[in-house]
Nucleic acid binder design. Structure first.
Lengths: 196, 196
DNA sequence: TCGAAAGCGGACCGGGCGGTCAACTTGGTA
DNA sequence: TACCAAGTTGACCGCCCGGTCCGCTTTCGA
């Protein structure tokens, strides 16, 4: 059992995580610890007191974001329309990414145990959402939760390639991809689903 | 008019570009010039004689790859089945990316004038492929060439998120996305197409 | 109120990076 | 074959990065 953080330390930790998320969103993985510390208004040494390495800091940010998604997904599991619930989940995920694109952080923290665990929990939640949608006939039979876990980030990624694009262009590509997931007019898939 | 390269310089340039592509594919943007030079079996100074900056080297690689795609697309414009031609183009593009994923280089060289020009030519070729496919009823009316220009990279991107996935998993996601592009069972799109 | 533990911060370190340069080698030509 | 422009090379430079360390400040419970 670890004792609670001192008041100033807790405040600094919050400032640090917020500043790091902003800095990473603006400058990508190359954002430096020194710049993050400056933005948070704290010393560089303090950063390393809270997180032993840059990777640990990244993992903490990822953890927060994935946990929000899991909560959203669990809520939507109780919605009336399973198809709308799945679509709604993808919209929330895309909105999170649109606000601050930190997708590159996932790759950088994939080695972290805690991140792997929480990502596994997210995959399970998405599995459940997809199962419900499939049973309801909202998505085709040959689609799995893992498929959606992987496809989830695609709309933002695609929209991100357009330079001066409007911020919600991702909606267009989410709609196209979601149409590809529907049972109507589905062609057989040339490759089996990946194992989880 | 610039005089032709000396024989040894031309050979070194070829070795350098090949080594750089390999090194970038393995280690991402952080691949260092020193390592690239070592891999090519030439001195570090020679790299900078051929390309004034690291960005210029990246731009040269991107240029080569995009030009291959343009040629492929132009060929496919004369194929019999416009729908199959478009799908075939996407398959070639995905295979190129699958063999060596250098997608991150595009972002790193987007400022380069020559790269912008050649990318514009690629967009025009894709425009033509999509126009033919649309006229033929192979893709829905509300899809543009720019849409496909953006969607092109999505299958590899999606498959890349699966850790130990088989190398041609992208085929599954290309099929799903392509199903979303077909006229059958299409739902209206919530966001207009981006301008080129 | 006061002392100890917790937290803070910035000078400092080793290392690797992109890029430069001047001495040297080599290919093409007259 | 002899010359020289073109090409090569690796030691070197300045910079910035992640991470360390230790003297100082703050918090908080007794």
């Amino acid at each position: 059992m670890t004792r609670p953080l001192r008041a100033d330390a807790a405040r600094n930790r919050r400032l640090l995580l917020a500043a790091a998320a902003d800095e990473f969103a603006e400058r990508g993985l190359e954002a430096s610890i020194a710049d993050i510390a400056r933005r948070a208004g704290i010393g560089k040494g303090t950063v390393f007191r809270h997180f032993a390495t840059k990777e640990d800091l990244i993992a903490a940010i990822v953890l927060d974001r994935v946990e929000v998604l899991i909560e959203t997904g669990d809520h939507l599991l109780e919605a009336d329309d399973p198809g709308q619930a799945l679509l709604g989940f993808l919209e929330v995920a895309a909105e999170q990414r649109q606000q601050r694109d930190l997708s590159f952080l996932h790759g950088a923290s994939s080695g972290n145990t805690e991140v792997s665990q929480v990502q596994e929990r997210l995959r399970a939640t998405i599995d459940a959402l997809v199962d419900r949608a499939r049973d309801h006939g909202a998505v085709r039979d040959d689609i799995t939760g893992t498929d959606l876990f992987l496809l989830m980030c695609a709309p933002n990624y695609v929209a991100g390639y357009a330079p001066g694009a409007p911020p919600d262009l991702w909606r267009r590509y989410l709609a196209i991809i979601f149409d590809g997931l529907r049972p109507q007019g589905a062609h057989p898939l040339p490759h089996p689903a990946p194992s989880p």
